[in-house]
Simulated scan of single mutants.
Amino acid sequence: MTVTIYHNPDCGTSRNTLAMIRASGEEPEIIEYLKTPPTREKLIELIAAAGLTPRKLLRQKDTPYDTLGLGEDKWSDDELVDFMLGHPILINRPLVVTDKGVRLCRPSEVVLEILPNPRFGVFVKEDGERVDTDAA
């Protein structure tokens, strides 16, 4: 199975998701999307495959969301995609793609829904939270 993670190594949720993928026995393709943003077509494809809208993929915390006025309802989906392409930090993360689907993995254990081997025992997140993948 192919697993791809759109990853930000500065994000704890993204690091936890990557660690869960690896703990399941998979070595994913890692795309640091701040360095290598997706194309417009790929971003639209990911949004649709995850069952999201561009607005639901927007990240607010520690981004120019407020400065750009993105909380206002005046922006079309195409315009929101333009903002994400112009400011990739606005793309919420991590997005994970497998043969089983695409998920925005917030919280990180959402990745268990699409991993080929989602049961691999207890996983301890960076903050000490324990996730029993066998009970998931």
Rank of each mutant, 00 (worst) to 15 (best):
E41Y: 01
D134N: 15
L34R: 08
D10F: 07
T36P: 03
E109K: 02
L112N: 05
D77K: 04
L80G: 07
C105K: 00
R103F: 04
F120N: 10
K61G: 00
D134M: 07
K61H: 10
K100Y: 02
S14G: 06
F123M: 06
L112V: 09
D132S: 11
R106E: 11
H87M: 07
R130V: 13
L18W: 02
D66C: 05
G71I: 06
A50T: 04
L112M: 11
I5W: 03
V124T: 15
E45T: 09
K35V: 09
V81M: 07
A135I: 06
A48I: 04
K35F: 05
V97P: 03
R15H: 09
I31Y: 06
K125E: 14
T98P: 02
K42L: 14
K100G: 04
F123W: 08
D99C: 06
A19D: 15
R93Y: 01
M1P: 05
V97M: 03
S14R: 00
L70K: 06
L112R: 06
G86D: 14
D132T: 13
H87Y: 14
V124G: 08
L70E: 10
G51K: 05
T36A: 12
V3G: 01
L80T: 13
V96N: 01
H7D: 06
Y6L: 01
M20C: 10
K61E: 12
Y65V: 13
E45I: 00
T36I: 03
M84C: 08
G86A: 15
E32V: 09
D78F: 03
N117Q: 08
G121I: 12
T13P: 05
L68T: 14
